[in-house]
Design a protein around this nucleic acid. Structure first.
Lengths: 254, 254
DNA sequence: GGAATGCCTTGATCCAGCGCAAAGAACTCG
DNA sequence: CGAGTTCTTTGCGCTGGATCAAGGCATTCC
């Protein structure tokens, strides 16, 4: 309980530990009381499964620290990560008995958990909070559609660049308001990156070494890079039409 | 108004014209009255844009008949369809000033439209309806994640098979409760299929001809096929582990 | 009817990126 | 400290599918 109360604040990295849809609770003593009563903080270590694919999904909640991967698997074992969840994102499938995706700890992490049933009944009693959950779901949908664009029509090089920029934004957004960081800490393994980007470990590795060779970034260690040329990386991501490169013919241009 | 009242029933194909999140309205005279007051039916012809990408999104609503494509475009013109909307799906981005995706008519279609603002205020006044909208959004998220699996790790052959099966399910689900149809009417062009599946027109064409050569389906005309072997198609989609083919080594097996 | 216009199909070529294999590099454990 | 384990990098050959380029086949419009 102590842990939860302190968690309803910021995690050790200064990121908000609960999603903004709890804002209604912060100001309202009774609501907050009710929330704390059904919440419990749990730690999971890297690789643990929080919710299995196609399983009864008993748990929902938010990420306090660490990273979760949301993934789907095909019958023959191929898998695709369809989302990464950082603090203070919501995890778990509300309003569905079974989860169509697996949720696993990509790193050691701490989660603020609720029983799905209890959480749903809490939402039913507080439409304003439910509304904010909907906003969170809509954001997740936006992110999914963004990622579909990446999976469907970007080359591997662009995918990796986009991924690194996403991590960079992620770090900038969450934590204390630092100046734009040039250091990228990739919180997941090459393998997870590959599964997220719909490619292979080897190709990820090659692409990153290639970026390093071209002077876009410097590899400090396999999980940590310094971005030497943010604009260059953005251009490699294909998401910006760099001035002066407007009519640069691209691999799949229309 | 006449048009709308008749639309709150079934469209010409016998599919429900309004999403189930209007169920609360059907039973409640006052609610229904209120809904009708803010709704208007509009026709769009194939290719017309309903909402532009990154634009102020004034309209939301449901599909009465026809198909909408939800798509995103990269600066260099490459595009990806991130969703197809059939009757009676919801379209438009509620609770956001700008739409991160474009919504276009993939065929001639009729829509039940609301001004986004009016619709949102309607939802605010009726939490039960808003709850059902959330369920619709969650379904859309599930569909998006499903499609990410397809885009990220299926071969073109599997993608095309999955697509055809989706259309088949779509036709089975919506309309009058017929016995499983073996006729697939693809409501969109080869080009749209390609953009949806993250591939090219030529490859789509080749794959379909290949299916025909293998006897899985028969091409009646470019937009209409008869599926001769549903199980075979399902197996080609890679989504089922066909009995007897359990250890069939697949292109990317783990 | 015939030219123009839009799909769709087919053929031929090429290369990005996958799969396999093996060699570092970092970490754990006895 | 050496053996085992796990993760990352590198080399190399192969191929699925993109690209480029014609060639059908309807439909529409003079």
């Amino acid at each position: 309980m102590e842990a939860l109360l302190s968690a309803i604040g910021r995690n050790e990295n200064g990121q908000p530990a609960l999603h903004r849809f709890f804002d209604h609770c912060a100001g309202d003593g009774a609501l907050r009381e009710e929330l704390v009563r059904i919440a419990h903080v749990r730690g999971f270590s890297s690789g643990e499964t929080i919710v299995g694919e196609g399983e009864e999904s008993g748990l929902v909640g938010t990420v306090i620290s660490g990273v979760l991967r949301v993934q789907k698997t095909m019958p023959d074992g191929r898998q695709q990560i369809v989302g990464l969840l950082f603090a203070p994102n919501l995890f778990g499938r509300v309003f569905s008995r079974v989860s169509p995706v697996a949720i696993e700890a990509a790193t050691d992490c701490r989660l603020c958990c609720f029983s799905r049933i209890a959480f749903e009944s809490f939402l039913a009693r507080h439409p304003a909070v439910e509304h904010d959950v909907m906003l969170a779901v809509l954001d997740e949908l936006d992110a999914a559609q963004e990622w579909m664009l990446l999976l469907g029509c970007q080359a591997v090089q662009e995918k990796v660049a986009s991924f690194l920029l996403m991590i960079l934004r992620q770090a900038d957004a969450g934590g204390r308001p630092r100046r734009r960081r040039r250091i990228v800490d990739v919180p997941i393994s090459r393998h997870d990156m590959a599964v997220y980007l719909g490619t292979t470990t080897e190709t990820i590795s090659r692409t990153i070494q290639d970026f390093a060779r071209r002077g876009v970034l410097r590899v400090i260690n396999p999980q940590r890079f310094e971005v030497l040329d943010v604009a260059g990386l953005a251009f490699l991501s294909g998401r910006v039409a760099e001035p002066g490169d407007i009519d640069e013919p691209s691999r799949k241009s229309a």
